[in-house]
């Protein structure tokens, strides 16, 4: 096959109104509109969604799994961000 492959798009589905979009998989398409059509036909044949997002896979910027611990380290020692860090004196309510 020497023809150029259509670009890859990642597909995100909102399954019900009120929920956030969730990654479902990917499709190949020549352009954005076709990517939406292919995503609909591939991932929502049973009414799995009320909204679709497609985005070119090569436009997604992702964190590097090899750096996970360093990358997320700044949050690690800030336990005071959690309510459970604080002791509530006996007798105090509704806090």
């Amino acid at each position: 096959m020497n023809e150029k492959e259509w670009p890859l798009y990642e597909v995100f589905i909102r399954s019900r109104s009120g929920l956030s979009h969730r990654h479902a998989g990917s499709v190949h398409a020549a352009d954005d509109q076709m990517a939406l059509d292919h995503a609909r036909d591939t991932y929502t044949r049973r009414m799995e969604g009320v909204s679709l997002w497609v985005v070119r896979s090569d436009l997604i910027v992702a964190s590097d799994p090899a750096d996970t611990s360093a990358f997320f380290a700044p949050a690690e020692d800030k336990i005071y961000r959690h309510p459970t860090f604080y002791k509530i004196p006996d007798g105090v309510e509704n806090l």
Binding site: K4, W6, A30, M34
Partner: peptide, 9 residues
């Protein structure tokens, strides 16, 4: 079909 879609895009 693939060629035409690509040319259109």
């Amino acid at each position: 079909v693939r060629d035409a879609a690509r040319a259109y895009a």
